[in-house]
Design a binder for these strands. Structure first.
Length: 273
DNA sequence: GCGACAG
DNA sequence: ATCTTGTCGC
């Protein structure tokens, strides 16, 4: 059952993907467009979504895509959708969206069809938005394709436009003493690409926040701050927890144990050749 | 050429 | 992303 590793994309594919990113980037709106965003207390915001994909260790083809919607500001789970999906594109830094976004778009469409009243007013996305080699990370990509406000929340710095994880950066991160502290990420070309946020007192490892779609950076940071019970903002954390749990149950089902045992694995190896 | 490289 | 439980500390 374990799928073989996806082939590294040919250069022609990467060029096509880059062109697609450039085409869609023209539709990104990097400023607030909603009423609730205009208030510093985010009054009017009632539902925040989170998305994530969890993968199986030795399997490059199957993953669980999850979309959750939490109430705001209580952060209680109102909606959960976990589904096994067949991943076809490999992970290539800078092209994460081509691997994950199709399943997230499907999840959003399913939600709109089945529970339109629970449609989130904004989505928190694992990964970057404008903080990206071509200024069009997964949070922008998902935002444009769904026309939903999106915020990029990355757990590691993607080195782009002169930004590096050097000693200076580590010093700046170290200077974030209390939760809520931030400093801007200014690219070599001048503009602020994102914000580094200490989201939790008990963790010195920060988050890298950037604009996805239909939200400005200040609002994005304010929103993420107000969604953090722990280091990872609750919508993404719940999506992560639930997709991993979904996979864990899949792997523990009797059928799955049998079909992925040493016996059948041998047969699959033969069939693969 | 070498290293870096969101998830 | 994933491999990994309990454990030491605030």
């Amino acid at each position: 059952m374990a799928g073989r590793a996806a082939e590294p994309p040919a250069d022609v594919t990467l060029r096509r993907w880059a062109r697609e990113q450039a085409r869609l980037k023209a539709s990104v709106v990097a400023e607030d467009t909603e009423e609730w965003q205009k208030d510093s207390g985010l009054t009017g915001l009632e539902r925040v979504g989170g998305v994530d994909l969890s993968y199986i260790k030795g399997d490059d083809t199957r993953a669980c895509a999850s979309l959750v919607v939490l109430s705001y500001p209580a952060l209680e789970v109102l909606y959960e959708d976990c589904r096994m999906v067949a991943v076809s594109a490999p992970y290539v830094p800078g092209f994460l969206a081509f691997r994950e976004v199709p399943f997230l778009v499907e999840a959003v469409q399913r939600l709109q069809q089945e529970e339109p009243k629970l449609k989130p007013q904004v989505l928190l996305v694992d990964g970057n938005g404008l903080l990206h080699p071509r200024g069009f990370g997964v949070a922008c990509h998902l935002g444009v394709l769904t026309d939903l406000p999106c915020v990029g929340v990355a757990k590691n710095l993607l080195q782009v436009d002169g930004l590096v994880r050097d000693e200076l950066h580590k010093e700046q991160v170290h200077s974030l003493q209390r939760e809520g502290d931030t400093f801007p990420l200014r690219g070599a070309s001048g503009g602020v690409l994102g914000m580094v946020l200490r989201s939790y007192n008990n963790s010195s490892k920060p988050l890298y926040i950037s604009v996805g779609h239909r939200v400005c950076l200040e609002t994005a940071v304010r929103l993420v701050k107000s969604c953090c019970r722990y280091r990872i903002p609750e919508p993404i954390r719940q999506a992560d927890i639930r997709s991993r749990e979904y996979i864990r149950k899949q792997l523990c089902s009797p059928l799955e144990v049998i079909s992925s045992g040493p016996e059948s694995r041998k047969k699959e190896a033969e069939l693969d050749d």
